[in-house]
Design a protein around this nucleic acid. Structure first.
Lengths: 253, 253
DNA sequence: CGGCTCGTTGAAGAAAATCAACTCGAGTGG
DNA sequence: CCACTCGAGTTGATTTTCTTCAACGAGCCG
């Protein structure tokens, strides 16, 4: 329920490629220009924060597009343990890789605007289009690559590297923090913890330590001012941190 | 289609769906029956244990099929840290989800037999076939689902749950251990550790503890006799362990 | 046999989890 | 307006789990 007042969101850059210029539905003769245009024919739905978009185990009859807001994909494994396997931002498609049943529950982190499309329609449109098909494949590949990246993080990185990786990812996926370096963090500490395989306490302590080193400055619960993005990048624990494309000079050494 | 093989490999059940009945190459008029048949037109190559099949960062001009043996997909992240993101068994395709450059190095765990096909050929065959396309999509979805499963393991499971999950996965992917309960474990302790986000010492200790509880019995470095598969399943840390399809009575409670 | 790798086991240490207290803000209601 | 509560977050103290360091053992091959 945090920050949905139309603008705070955009300021932080989360409106990545939100609503596109209206095009006519592709049903019939007009071919779709892009995957996201497929969703344009369906109504915009509003999902309140922390309400589910779809449930683990349910038959995946639909796919969803996040138009605005942030969605988390999560799995519950006994005794109150929860793992968040991905966050989906404006422009992302939820369920692209799902066949049969959803292997996750998708919940709105913030209040969200979404569109849905039936899997049947989606697949027939995609398989019938030489434009959409490679785009769909590309999407699947990116998702899998992201999953592998996350596995590396969870396998081998320590608390600080995990958090820094998360912040860098958030800055690039949620939208660049921009000149001011103000990064909006829509998810709460528990979400971050469950995404990074840590506890809220460790997340909190790690942020405090970064703050003490003047790498970031917390401004309220949901904002972090990035003082030195290049240092943040170098703390991600990637072998090639120094040559990272994220690292092209941000002014501060 | 499993087990036509005749050797030590088959005994352990790793010949999942290895070599198929010879079909003529699909180039030209004869359509392929399945994704794996696509590889039939190319020569069988032998890769010695611990030699690379492809390298991280290299342009992914080819895809590979594992015909026999086990391959590990790994990433190195500075200072000698290695993460194994997946093992690929006989019948699996390596690089299905890759576009552009390989995000991993693929290395033979055991001596392997592989076939390769150019990405260009693969994609043109797949996109041109109504049989192959859904099969390809299914493959991508399964890979992503497996990646999510692994993320849950790495996020939330303790050493024992990780190891038990691995053994159950190995039993189902590498082939059922069968009546005798003898499970072949082709990878060494370091491979297992890097796959599960642990150290070799912790892997070793965890196996010893399972052995002390008479759940498994190590027989040499690369064999484990599963005494009680249902107990192993229940130790995986999945919420639904009791109702798992792996759990249909194996005799022992 | 000696030298090697791989695996196991023990002891010590470190990182993160757990448990617990406390702060901060927002909302509620007197 | 202020006291109160409630949830989220922070911080400290303690414990647990796993890692690290080190020694040792088993199998293998020259």
């Amino acid at each position: 329920m945090l920050m949905q007042g139309k603008n705070a969101f955009e300021i932080a850059g989360y409106a990545r490629e939100a609503v596109q210029p209206r095009t006519s539905p592709s049903r019939g003769s007009t071919p779709c220009q892009s995957l996201l245009a497929l969703f344009q024919m369906s109504a915009l739905e509003t999902v309140p924060a922390s309400k589910a978009v779809c449930w683990e185990g349910d038959s995946a009859s639909h796919l969803f597009q996040v138009v605005e807001g942030v969605v988390r994909l999560q799995r519950i494994i006994g005794e109150g343990r929860r793992a968040i396997t991905a966050f989906q931002y404006a422009g992302d498609v939820v369920g692209a890789f799902v066949q049969g049943e959803f292997p996750f529950t998708a919940e709105a982190v913030t209040e969200c605007k979404i569109r849905r499309i039936s899997r049947k329609t989606f697949l027939s449109e995609v398989t019938g289009s030489d434009v959409l098909r490679p785009e769909y494949i590309k999407l699947l590949c990116e998702e899998t690559a992201a999953a592998h990246e996350q596995m590396v993080l969870l396998s081998k990185k320590n608390a600080e590297e995990r958090l820094c990786s998360f912040l860098v990812e958030l800055a690039s996926r949620g939208g660049a923090p921009g000149q001011t370096g103000l990064l909006q963090v829509p998810m709460n500490r528990q979400d971050i913890a469950d995404y990074l395989g840590m506890t809220i306490e460790t997340v909190s302590r790690t942020i405090s330590k970064l703050a003490a080193r003047k790498i970031v400055v917390p401004e309220g619960r949901h904002n972090l001012r990035i003082i030195c993005f290049s240092r943040l990048s170098r703390l991600c624990g990637n072998a090639d941190a120094f040559h990272s494309e994220n690292c092209h000079r941000m002014g501060i050494h």
